Amino acid sequence: MNRWGKAFLVLALVGVVAMAFRVSWNALRDIARATGADGMAATLYPFVVDGLMALALVAALVLTGEARRFALRVLAAYTAASLVLNYVHGLVPALHSESVKWMRLAEWDPAHWALVLLATSLPVGSIYFGSDLVAKVLHHRPHTPVVEPCGERAEEPAHPPHTPDTVDIDRDPAPVEEVPHVLVREALPQLSAYADGVRTDDPHTPHAVPVQPAHLDEGMSREEVFEEAELERLRQDARRTYAESAQAARPLSARALGEAYGMSESWGRKQILAARDDSDRPHLTAVPAGTG
Score class of each variant (00 low, 15 high):
residue 1 M to Y: 05
residue 254 A to L: 12
residue 144 T to V: 15
residue 70 F to E: 14
residue 138 L to F: 08
residue 21 F to H: 13
residue 155 E to G: 03
residue 76 A to M: 09
residue 125 G to Y: 10
residue 271 Q to D: 01
residue 24 S to M: 06
residue 207 H to F: 02
residue 250 R to G: 00
residue 246 A to M: 08
residue 127 I to Q: 02
residue 156 E to H: 10
residue 174 A to V: 10
residue 287 V to D: 06
residue 80 A to I: 10
residue 178 E to W: 05
residue 52 L to C: 05
residue 25 W to K: 12
residue 5 G to W: 09
residue 67 A to R: 14
residue 55 L to C: 02
residue 1 M to W: 06
residue 169 I to K: 11
residue 49 V to I: 14
residue 282 P to G: 01
residue 113 W to M: 07
residue 216 L to W: 02
residue 209 V to E: 09
residue 244 E to M: 13
residue 15 G to D: 03
residue 216 L to F: 00
residue 214 A to Q: 08
residue 55 L to W: 06
residue 177 E to Y: 05
residue 274 A to V: 01
residue 57 L to Y: 15
residue 55 L to S: 03
residue 238 A to V: 07
residue 124 V to D: 05
residue 279 S to G: 01
residue 171 R to D: 01
residue 229 A to D: 00
residue 228 E to M: 06
residue 19 M to C: 05
residue 255 R to A: 07
residue 199 R to V: 07
residue 12 A to D: 00
residue 161 P to W: 14
residue 150 C to M: 12
residue 6 K to Y: 08
residue 71 A to Y: 11
residue 133 L to W: 10
residue 242 Y to W: 15
residue 23 V to M: 11
residue 159 H to I: 15
residue 289 A to Q: 08
residue 5 G to K: 14
residue 134 V to Q: 02
residue 78 Y to K: 15
residue 65 G to I: 15
residue 68 R to I: 08
residue 223 E to D: 03
residue 163 T to P: 02
residue 267 W to L: 01
residue 4 W to S: 07
residue 168 D to S: 07
residue 262 G to R: 09
residue 200 T to G: 04
residue 205 T to V: 13
residue 257 L to A: 05
residue 96 H to Q: 08
residue 253 S to D: 08
residue 161 P to K: 15
residue 194 Y to N: 04
residue 78 Y to A: 08
residue 110 P to Y: 14
residue 51 G to H: 10
residue 231 L to Q: 11
residue 187 A to Q: 12
residue 205 T to E: 03
residue 231 L to I: 04
residue 270 K to V: 07
residue 110 P to V: 14
residue 88 V to N: 03
residue 221 S to T: 15
residue 243 A to L: 07
residue 125 G to H: 12
residue 123 P to Y: 10
residue 250 R to I: 03
residue 218 E to T: 04
residue 258 G to F: 04
residue 182 V to Y: 06
residue 53 M to H: 13
residue 23 V to E: 09
residue 266 S to Y: 04
residue 89 H to N: 09
